[in-house]
């Protein structure tokens, strides 16, 4: 049997963490409780953060959007701020898990789990999201790209938690594209996913673009050299075919139960073809 502690304030959380340094911490439990059930991990003490209201909710502060780490996916989908200012994240959340999973799972949990298939991660990478990491006596802000180190590995020390996510609104982009390829649309771990933010000039050339892929490497993959290469190119199949090949050469997928590495490599590039659909037909 494990103890289960459910703190309601940060003060209480810090005390529980100090008293139980080996405790495993969870939010929605949609990942950790599955692993405990299958005996993949064992622990004597669990700390459930779901009642920390201090770390819940979406707000705007000094022009930045702050999302508490304990905000559930459903709460984000219901937030007018997310709907209006973070359309890319909104698109990714719509496809995440299922209604009960979205009621339980949290943004912080999706980040700290650091799955290469984490659905919120590609949008957060190209939105240049920063994470606030807190402990009882300190607080630091890190870009999400340097926080996630590999599958299930993050730059977090004992006594630290992820408290909030800081994002700049991405409404200055014309295109907020997210697509996930999975075995089915609900409850499917992605086989490949791609998020894109893009601006297009009047002559249908790409004036600005950011791209990130999920499930094709140990973490989310973003290739700034390919983004630079794409700027100035026409948004047609011909115009981006060299970039598609570069992406296919750059991703680092593996074979697993869901798909082969070769299939993922092929699809990762071809997902970019969808972007041509945003070209205007003038």
């Amino acid at each position: 049997m494990s103890h289960v502690l459910v703190p309601t304030t940060l003060e209480e959380l810090w005390t529980f963490m100090a008293e139980n340094p080996d405790a495993m911490i969870y939010a929605g439990g949609t990942d950790l409780l599955v692993k405990i059930r299958s005996c993949a991990v064992t622990t004597d003490c669990l700390i459930c953060m779901e009642r920390l209201n201090e770390l819940k909710g979406v707000r705007v502060e000094a022009g930045e959007i702050i999302i508490g780490a304990l905000t559930t996916h459903r709460e984000m989908l219901d937030s007018p701020i997310v709907q209006r200012d973070l359309p890319l994240l909104y698109n990714a959340l719509k496809n995440l898990g299922s209604p009960p999973i979205r009621n339980m799972g949290t943004l912080g949990g999706n980040i700290v789990t650091a799955s290469p298939a984490g659905d919120t991660l590609p949008p957060l990478y190209i939105s240049n999201a920063h994470l606030e990491i807190r402990s009882r006596n300190s607080s630091r802000r890190v870009p999400i790209e340097s926080f996630i180190l590999g599958p299930g590995r993050v730059d977090m020390r004992p006594g630290e938690i992820l408290s909030q996510v800081v994002i700049n609104k991405n409404t200055r982009f014309m295109v907020h594209h997210y697509e996930k390829v999975g075995r089915r649309s609900a409850l499917a771990c992605s086989v490949v996913s791609m998020a894109a933010l893009m601006n297009i000039s009047e002559d249908n050339t790409i004036s600005e673009i950011r791209l990130a892929w999920g499930s094709v490497g140990p973490t989310v993959m973003r290739f700034r050299d390919i983004e630079t290469f794409l700027v100035g190119r026409t948004l047609t199949v011909r115009g981006i075919e060299d970039a598609i090949r570069k992406v296919q050469q750059s991703v680092m997928p593996i074979d697993d139960v869901r798909a082969s590495a070769a299939y993922r490599r092929e699809v990762a590039g071809r997902l970019m073809l969808r972007l041509t659909g945003y070209a205007s037909s003038r």
Partner: peptide, 15 residues
């Protein structure tokens, strides 16, 4: 009032 999975919820969370 919100749908949740009882297989991934622990007794302590129902308090």
């Amino acid at each position: 009032d919100k749908v949740r999975l009882s297989c991934l919820t622990l007794a302590a969370q129902l308090q």
